[in-house]
């Protein structure tokens, strides 16, 4: 272990995305006014970087995603735009609702999963590897169409057991260091792990451009960083555990403003 693991640990906890507040009372049911995005923690330079599309490095991914949106793909040689038209209209507010219930499987599906479903079934193209440049670019482009809108997880009773499972994971101690998400991001949000402020873990900006990564990355990548930091075996990309956790986190952050593509340290 050594340097690499400690780096993971340091950053591991640093920024799931979000906020300062009193040391004690961050809860899932905190009133909206008490909830803070990771944006609120950042210095003015990083905030300015996110707010200016010309300096936000995540916008490069968005541009790639827009090109993919319009490019023919798969054996059908259809583009996303061929069916969905102008994403500025058709994708408005869409990313803010995911994960939602997939009617075919009756299980939750995240935005990456839905895009893959479309590629495989409709375009007859290969699924995009999770966390690859293309997958991140397309989700960033679709995500941008919800920027400024409130996170709007569907109030669908069929999702409740999955969201509850996500909440159970959030409060479960894991890893050799034996931390739960809640112990840091609810009980100690606003405190500092080393020099890094512990945010409230509201996933408002994903995929984010993380300066430490020097790239776009998904919420699941960020969650894996945290798990490695606590010396826990991370869940796999696309696993039901991560999708359940995302369901819970989005519910917990419902109503907060989508920032995609967010910039984080």
């Amino acid at each position: 272990m050594g340097g690499r693991a400690s780096a993971f640990l340091l950053v591991g906890f640093a920024a799931l995305g979000l906020g300062l507040a009193s040391l004690s009372a961050q809860t899932a049911d905190a009133p909206p006014s008490d909830r803070k995005s990771g944006f609120d923690y950042m210095g003015p330079d990083s905030q300015a970087m996110q707010k200016d599309d010309l300096s936000n490095p995540g916008m490069l991914g968005v541009l790639d995603g827009e090109a993919m949106w319009n490019a023919p793909a798969g054996t059908t040689q259809k583009s996303c735009a061929a069916c969905h038209g102008d994403a500025r209209e058709s994708m408005k507010g869409v990313a803010a609702k995911y994960p939602l219930l997939d009617e075919a499987t009756k299980t939750p599906i995240d935005l990456v999963g839905r895009i893959d479903q479309c590629r495989v079934d409709r375009q007859q193209a290969a699924a995009l590897p999770r966390e690859g440049r293309e997958s991140l670019a397309l989700t960033a482009f679709v995500g941008l169409q919800s920027r400024g809108m409130p996170l709007a997880p569907p109030d669908d009773a069929r999702l409740t057991p999955f969201r509850k499972a996500g909440e159970a994971l959030y409060t479960r101690r894991m890893g050799q260091l034996n931390f739960s998400c809640a112990q840091c991001h609810d009980d100690n949000a606003g405190g500092h792990l080393g020099s890094a402020p512990i945010p409230q873990a509201h996933p408002t900006g994903y995929p984010i451009y993380r300066l430490e990564w020097q790239s776009l990355g998904s919420l699941q990548r960020r969650l894996r960083n945290c798990m490695v930091g606590t010396r826990a075996e991370p869940f796999a990309y696309g696993s039901p555990e991560f999708i359940n956790l995302e369901l819970y986190l989005n519910w917990r952050a419902r109503g907060m403003e989508v920032e995609t593509p967010g910039v984080r340290p």
Binding site: M1, Q176, R231, A232, E233
Partner: peptide, 12 residues
């Protein structure tokens, strides 16, 4: 009484 400890750390 620990959960999801990776093999590299298990038992240590």
């Amino acid at each position: 009484h620990l959960q999801r400890v990776p093999p590299a750390f298990a038992g240590r």
